[in-house]
Amino acid sequence: MNNKAILAAAILGTLAYGQTAAAPHAVETVIVQAARVEKDMKDIPQSMDYLSAEDIEKHRYKTVADAIKSVANIVLPELPGDYSYIQVRGLPRHLEQTNVPIYVDGVPQTSLYGLNLLLKDVESIEFLRGPQGNTYGSNARDGIIVITTKKQGNDPSASFELGVANYDQQSGTVAAGTALIEDVLTAKMTLDYLTRDGFVENTHLNKSVDPKEQRSAMLSLHWTPSSDWTANLYLDHTTIESGVYPYVKDDPKTERGDDLKSATDIEGLFDQTSKGAALNVTWTGLENWRLSSVTGIRKIDTFGRFDAT
């Protein structure tokens, strides 16, 4: 083989290798909702974190606080009476309103009570860092958390989950959904229950100080009368009966084997009822425009009785 033939073979081999190396690889497209309109994640011009349904299931996140633990430089301390706040990069917090609002399917959750939501049928959790005032208003000083739930299809679906743990903890979740009018109206309902003994024993009354019983019910209706209109109605009701919950953390740092005791002649009570309703209506009749209206109401009643001495 002469030199010209060798050179030609080398050039052809190089071209073939270049074409093979340049072959495009399949890249998964992640569509996010945090910008108020659906966008590819790579088109969001801000720092953001994204948790998929697979991430939530893999790590068994049960609440918003569980999920936030996986995000750098953000914490959600759980304070007495189910009072919670989100803090980013150590920035000062507001005592009466959250600086990082949580939106569930476009509906704001702005109360510091009940902010640590249960994660049920969640499709994704998105966290945008930094001020989001242009899109979400002045309360979004440090960022925004957007939770998107799974949409119910025409086919009926159902699931249930049962659990047991130490301190005689028993839990159960049932979720079911179906189409009431095919391609137009769907409904989804979730029932959740948890009960457990307390971690601290009251030796005077011979019973635990901080037992807990929690019941939740959630109902959502999704209406799509046309390609331009969608509406979501969300109803929820939660009751918590938990002894002196404000003074005994739900997940104390002390070891479970520690012999924790107290002696008071008053049976502590801390009961809380949360009821909410929200209607989210969206119109997309114009290209590149999306108009949304959100109306919501929430009522939280709390009753506590305990010996604080």
Results as ranks from 00 to 15, higher is better:
P246Y: 03
K275S: 06
T239I: 10
P80Y: 03
V88C: 08
S52G: 10
P131E: 10
I74Q: 12
D228T: 10
Q132I: 13
S293R: 02
N99F: 05
L15P: 05
T282A: 06
A5H: 13
A34P: 09
T238I: 11
G276I: 04
T63M: 04
L128M: 13
V281H: 07
I125V: 14
L51K: 12
F160E: 09
A65I: 09
K212T: 13
T110E: 13
Y83W: 10
Y167G: 01
D265Q: 10
Y136C: 08
S159D: 14
S52P: 06
R215V: 09
V209I: 12
P45C: 04
I68K: 09
K69M: 03
I144G: 05
D271I: 08
A277C: 02
E241H: 12
Q170K: 15
I68E: 04
S157V: 12
L15H: 10
S70M: 01
K69F: 02
K188W: 07
K42H: 13
L205M: 12
G137K: 14
A158M: 14
G114H: 08
S293P: 08
L115D: 03
Y61P: 00
K261M: 04
K188C: 03
W223R: 00
E28P: 00
D301Y: 08
K62D: 01
R60Y: 06
G13Y: 10
V32M: 11
H94G: 08
T149Y: 01
G143M: 06
G130K: 13
Y245I: 09
S262N: 04
I145E: 07
D49G: 10
G257C: 00
T224Q: 13
T20S: 05
G172F: 08
L112P: 05
P80C: 05
I145A: 03
M218I: 14
Q169E: 07
R60N: 15
A67H: 07
S220Y: 09
L7D: 11
I240P: 00
E255S: 13
L95Q: 11
L221C: 05
A65D: 06
M48T: 11
T203C: 05
A23H: 11
F306T: 07
L15S: 14
D43A: 05
G268L: 03
K62E: 04
V200S: 04
K299M: 03
I297L: 10
Y136P: 13
K249S: 15
L162I: 07
V164Q: 11
N116T: 09
A278Y: 08
A8V: 14
T178A: 15
Y193E: 00
K207L: 07
T98M: 02
N116W: 02
N206C: 04
T230W: 02
L279D: 05
A278S: 15
I102P: 00
Y113D: 02
V100H: 08
P225E: 01
G304S: 15
H59G: 01
G114V: 06
H237G: 11
E28D: 09
D250V: 04
T254N: 05
G133R: 08
A179Y: 03
E57D: 07
L112Y: 05
Y103N: 11
A308E: 13
S208E: 12
